[in-house]
């Protein structure tokens, strides 16, 4: 499956360049963004494999704090000018200089792109038994809190299962998950409203 990659970068030349280099290495669905706010909104609700972010975008403090608080499974590559101090260095998988030479840049990107897909990291796209249980409950129309109560797990765990289900199946909405559950005989059709 194609990886979901975001390029958050104000310069058109850079955007095009990064995207061309990526497409030489892997098959990817690339989304372009110019502003950190846009990126934050997107990451809140969408599964993403990898984000390229220009350090220029981190200059707005409010949005930057939001960005650092975000819980996303994505990996991040930050693009910098040389000798630039990067805040919260450990948030980023790699720091790449705009002036990096090819022999340094390409192997590094190959490494990150090669194992950055959420699916690869999970080893398998097959749902675990627990995830199947949660999926059934979602398809039957229960809320996160109800599911937590019924399966004796915390609401936080339910939400994390749901994120994994979505990234494994590529289906995000409740009605989409319901169709999936019926098509795969997880629940009988007459049990849904």
């Amino acid at each position: 499956m194609a990886q979901h990659i975001i390029i958050a970068e104000p310069s058109y030349l850079m955007k095009r360049g990064i995207s061309a280099v990526i497409s030489d290495i892997v098959q990817a669905e690339v989304i372009f963004m110019d502003e950190l706010q846009e990126l934050n909104n997107y990451l809140e609700t969408n599964p993403v494999d990898l984000v390229f972010i220009d350090e220029q975008l981190l200059s707005n403090k409010t949005q930057r704090d939001l960005f650092f608080q975000l819980q996303s499974e994505a990996r991040y590559i930050v693009l910098t000018n040389d000798r630039q101090e990067i805040p919260a260095r450990k948030k980023f998988t790699e720091v790449i200089s705009r002036n990096a030479p090819k022999e340094k840049l390409i192997p590094l990107l190959e490494k990150v792109l090669g194992d950055s897909s959420v699916e690869n990291r999970k080893k398998s796209a097959i749902l675990s038994e627990r995830e199947n249980e949660v999926l059934k409950q979602v398809a039957l129309g229960y809320t996160n809190q109800q599911i937590a109560d019924r399966l004796f797990i915390s609401k936080h765990t339910v939400i994390s299962h749901r994120k994994n289900i979505t990234s494994k199946l590529g289906i995000k909405t409740v009605s989409g998950l319901t169709v999936y559950a019926v098509l795969n005989n997880l629940i009988p059709k007459d049990q849904i409203e």
């Binding site: 289906i171 909405t173 009605s175 989409g176 169709v179 999936y180 098509l183």
Partner: peptide, 21 residues
């Protein structure tokens, strides 16, 4: 913006269900 999100997500789901399942 929540509604917009929903409109796009369901379209993606429909495509994915048809292609994969």
């Amino acid at each position: 913006s929540e509604e917009h999100d929903n409109v796009i997500s369901k379209m993606l789901d429909l495509k994915n269900i048809i292609i994969k399942y």
